[in-house]
Design a protein around this nucleic acid. Structure first.
Length: 890
RNA sequence: GCCCGCUUGGCGGAACUGGUAGACGCAACGGACUUAAAAUCCGUAGGCCUCCGGGCCGUGCCGGUUCAAGUCCGGCAGCGGGCACCA
């Protein structure tokens, strides 16, 4: 029995495809275009099966769309700037460029062995000056259009290394290399005005119908448009009132304190004269810059001793705190706290002994015997039983008063808003907000306001391995001067001394010293580089015309954009996708030929996870170092038992990676692709196991045997359907039609696992034929040819080999998707279930679309149904044609 | 802490707009072939009970809507993704 020889077949067909330029993207007016894009990788070293899953999914789409008659653009490139290259430079004394290009070479070779249908002529690497010179020009355009500006902003600072740290380099508040306590520092940095597009980016989410709902939701929440109010509190002894922003003006009557951010001007002014305030602010600055750290830290405040007058409650004074959880970037950097209706405020109030004043509770909560109370869900009601006016249980805020409940329910509430409500009146949250805002406006101390959570995009990075920011600063007057376009690109110097801490460009002896392009007088280059999200925000435009003199070639962009299907990890749901959406719009405003929305369709695939293994000394072990013996996991080298850990995302640090070369070397690319596509639905996580690989390998061989050693001789290639078909053969012809239809729908809907299951199911049926019936030799040939074309997007090399073995001319990749006669889809006999009171008691066979009374009669005649209803009265019989019969009896 | 998901046999998963839960596969078990093994082929298979007709239970947990709930609604738990300088 011959086994499928992938070692010869895979390189052979890869060569054939390359020689024929089979995947060259061509602008063809006669065919619909289709642009498939997988998120390009960071060249980190080697590809693992996690990468491969992303590309395999995209390749199925690309090959399927090609078979469906589209002209396809399917490119690949490298997101080549980034921090790991610098880390490698520091640790291994290798230049980031060398390290990066070596990784690109290795990973590119690995990619080629997967047989992916890329147009390799369009390969780009973002660290190539030929790429980034265009983004330097884009930046100059943004500058001209007022979409880029400079201001001071906070960074994580390592005081020992004198360097800026990325959030991921801050571990428990300490620098990852030095262990020093991280501080916050203010630096002058470049920003892009993404906030100017906040409304547009939010509104356009509705039109992104082929995006997952959850990604749209996450983006909407990230933009975080909230309608609330700005209001000004008078502070005793202060000339200026303190302005706060709130999304919940309806809780103003429950206010019991005010708090400002540690970097709020008021806080900074107090710190000038009070050492304890300064010390508190200093403490806050040691927290670092990430929102996660700030929000999970213990809520702490510093009582400034100032007090603010409550605008509506006479004689009520609110203490003013400096608090570590108030963010200067959001709203006005100052808040009022209403502990009764916000958990964080409640925590703070309990800690500092501040009053907790409930001002709203749901309708019905006051009179629990009412019918209204019955409408409350049971969980809420139970909590209100004790005291209807209570909204707080010790230190825990009852969920009924949380924003989420109030807003999603849209329900009515009792409010205690002093003179503005009657005790018996109920209001929605929106009505109560409007009432308070009207009163603020009437008194001239506040007004309705819209705020966004979204902040402008800080693009400056104090690093070497990134795209230089093309501006200089004149030495004599400090003026910022853009580098003229004809002097682009500003390139990176090669000779870098990695032994010195800090920004290598800043440390370089000569690079930053230049002259002002306007005056010719001495100037200093900007030594920061761009955030690497900058490169990935427009690469999809560059792929349309990677060799064009213009960064974005108008004709090519017009033809190919938008990306019809974008595929990548859910971890990019917010930042990369939002930045790209913004960038495309910003470019358009600057006159570039782009669409509004770069990605018409988005699919977010799950991660590939694998077990982790740890030796007794705590060190991680690679899967290939492990053997299983009698249910025990042992280190292969010495037979010492190891600890099996949980499934985790494949990562180098935990060593739970499975390298591609291992898989492809032992089983071939097609088997690997089959595993990656068939074991889990693409959007879910996939557990990589050796057993899964074995199963896929068996199926690859099974398919191969079908054509190389058929159970009986097949009809001649190209022979016509015989007039006579055996019963089995004609049933299978119907099965094939349903398979073709189903697989197509599955591919369209990214259900690759379901498509494979369908194909396998059909193969199982096909294998039952023994060739004795009329026309079966023709049917099997016909079915195998169709199967070959259908499986080709998943296992393309195998499909070519099968096509050839079936004696067909040409290549599978040139074949159109198989056709079928729609009349074959319908089945004449249908099996439906008969239930008694919702429990299945029998199944009956009925002709399709049988009349209801026929179905009922047949159902009632079933012995098991008769037994089940014995002694009961049949109340009603529900018949859903072609679906179910349910007998309701009591 | 905040935002967003996910949870179905021993395992991965299937189940269209609520209508026979467990398709397809992995692992397992029994059998055929073989000197033997591998490979291959055939068969069994959610759990419990059974007088072998069938019955009861079952989609993370609690509650609700419905003739009917894995699917819809409310609550809870566990696990995961993101949180703006990882990419």
């Amino acid at each position: 029995m011959s086994r499928y020889n992938f070692r010869d077949a895979e390189p052979k067909w890869q060569n054939v495809w390359r020689e024929r330029e089979a995947f060259k993207a061509v602008e063809d007016p006669d065919r619909p275009k289709y642009y498939v894009l997988e998120m390009f990788p960071y060249p980190s070293g080697r590809l693992h099966v996690g990468h491969a899953r992303n590309y395999a999914i995209g390749d199925v789409v690309a090959r399927y769309k090609r078979a469906r008659g589209h002209t396809v653009l399917h490119p690949m490139g490298w997101d080549a700037f980034g921090l790991p290259a610098e880390n490698a430079a520091i640790q291994n004394d290798v230049h980031p460029r060398e390290w990066t290009y070596e990784n690109i070479r290795v990973m590119g070779e690995q990619l080629r062995t997967l047989g992916l249908s890329y147009d390799w002529d369009r390969e780009i690497a973002t660290c190539d000056p030929g790429y980034y010179r265009h983004e330097q020009k884009m930046f100059l355009d943004f500058l001209r259009a007022g979409l880029a500006y400079r201001r001071e902003s906070w960074v994580n600072w390592d005081p020992v290394d004198n360097t800026v740290l990325a959030n991921e380099q801050v571990i428990d508040g300490r620098g990852w290399r030095t262990g020093a306590t991280v501080e916050r520092r203010k630096l002058n940095q470049w920003f892009l005005k993404i906030t100017e597009f906040a409304d547009e980016l939010l509104a356009a989410l509705d039109g992104l119908e082929r995006w997952p709902e959850r990604v749209r939701l996450m983006q909407a929440n990230w933009i975080g448009r909230s309608v609330g109010a700005r209001l000004r509190f008078e502070i005793a002894g202060e000339a200026e009132p303190l302005e706060v922003f709130t999304t919940r003006p309806d809780t103003l009557f429950g206010a019991s304190f005010l708090a400002v951010a540690p970097d709020h001007p008021l806080a900074e002014r107090i710190a000038e004269t009070r050492a304890d305030a300064a010390a508190f602010i200093e403490e806050c600055r040691k927290l670092g810059t990430s929102e996660e750290v700030i929000e999970t830290a213990e809520k702490r405040g510093f009582d400034t001793g100032l007090s603010a007058r409550h605008p509506f409650r006479d004689g009520v004074e609110l203490p003013v705190y400096i608090a570590n959880f108030v963010l200067m970037e959001y709203g006005t950097g100052a808040i009022f706290g209403c502990p009764a209706h916000d958990q964080r405020d409640l925590d703070f109030a309990r800690k500092y002994g501040l009053p907790v004043i409930p001002v709203l509770w749901p309708e019905g909560a006051r009179a629990l015997d009412d019918d209204a109370a019955a409408a409350l869900d049971a969980g809420v009601r139970a909590r209100f039983d004790a005291d209807p006016s209570q909204t707080i249980d010790g230190d825990r805020l009852l969920h009924v008063s949380r924003t989420a409940y109030v807003d999603t329910q849209g329900g009515r509430h009792h409010y205690a808003l002093g003179p503005f409500t009657e005790a018996t009146e109920t209001l929605t949250v929106e009505e109560a907000k409007a009432r308070i805002i009207a009163e603020l406006e009437r008194r001239g101390i506040g007004e309705g306001a819209v705020r966004y959570r979204l902040r402008d995009w800080g693009v400056s990075r104090q690093r070497y391995w990134g795209c230089p920011i093309p501006v200089v600063y004149r030495v004599d007057d400090g003026a910022m001067v853009p580098v003229p376009e004809d002097q682009l690109p500003v390139t990176l110097p090669d000779d870098i001394d990695w032994s010195k801490p800090g920004n290598p460009l800043d440390n370089h002896p000569t690079w930053k010293h230049t002259t002002c392009p306007e005056t010719g007088r001495p100037a200093i280059r900007e030594t920061d580089t761009f955030d690497t999200f900058f490169e990935s925000s427009w690469y999809f435009l560059r792929f349309c015309s990677p060799h064009s003199e213009q960064g974005v070639d108008p004709a090519a962009s017009r033809y190919w954009m938008p990306v019809d299907q974008y595929i990548g990890g859910i971890e990019h749901a917010i930042l990369h996708l939002l930045y790209s959406r913004f960038f495309t719009r910003a470019l358009k405003r600057c006159g570039y030929e782009t669409v509004d929305e770069p990605f018409a369709g988005l699919m977010t695939q799950g991660m590939v996870v694998h077990e982790t293994y740890r030796a007794s000394d705590g060190g991680w072990l690679y899967p290939e170092e492990i053997v299983e013996k009698d249910g025990q996991w042992l280190r292969a080298a010495d037979g010492v038992p190891v600890q099996r850990g949980r499934l985790e995302k494949m990562s180098k640090s935990k060593k739970n990676v499975v390298g591609l070369e291992h898989v492809i070397g032992n089983y071939g690319a097609d088997t690997a692709r089959l595993v990656l596509l068939s074991d889990s639905p693409p959007e879910r996580d996939l557990e990589w196991t050796e057993a899964g690989l074995e199963g896929a390998w068996r199926y690859v061989n099974r398919l191969w045997r079908f054509v190389s050693e058929p159970a009986f001789p097949l009809a001649e290639a190209g022979s016509a359907q015989p007039a006579q078909l055996s019963g089995a053969a004609s049933r299978l012809l119907g099965g094939l039609a349903r398979t073709i239809k189903g697989v197509g729908e599955d591919f369209d809907g990214f259900r690759m696992n379901r498509a494979v299951a369908r194909i396998r199911e059909f193969t199982n049926q096909l294998a039952e034929l023994d060739g004795s019936g009329a026309g079966e030799d023709w049917l099997v040939r016909h079915a195998l040819e169709a199967l070959t074309v259908m499986i080709a997007p998943i296992t393309p090399h195998l499909a070519e080999e099968m096509w050839q073995a079936l004696g067909r001319e040409g290549l599978v990749i040139e074949q159109a998707w198989p056709d079928y006669d729609p009349a074959l889809l319908v089945e004449d006999q249908i099996t439906i279930a008969v239930q008694v009171n919702g429990k299945v008691r029998a199944t009956i066979e009925l002709p399709r679309d049988a009349a209801k009374d026929v179905a009922e009669e047949r159902a009632m005649a079933e012995p098991n149904v008769m037994r089940a209803v014995e002694g009961m009265t049949v109340r009603k019989v529900i018949v859903v044609p072609n679906r179910i019969v349910n007998v309701v009896a009591a």
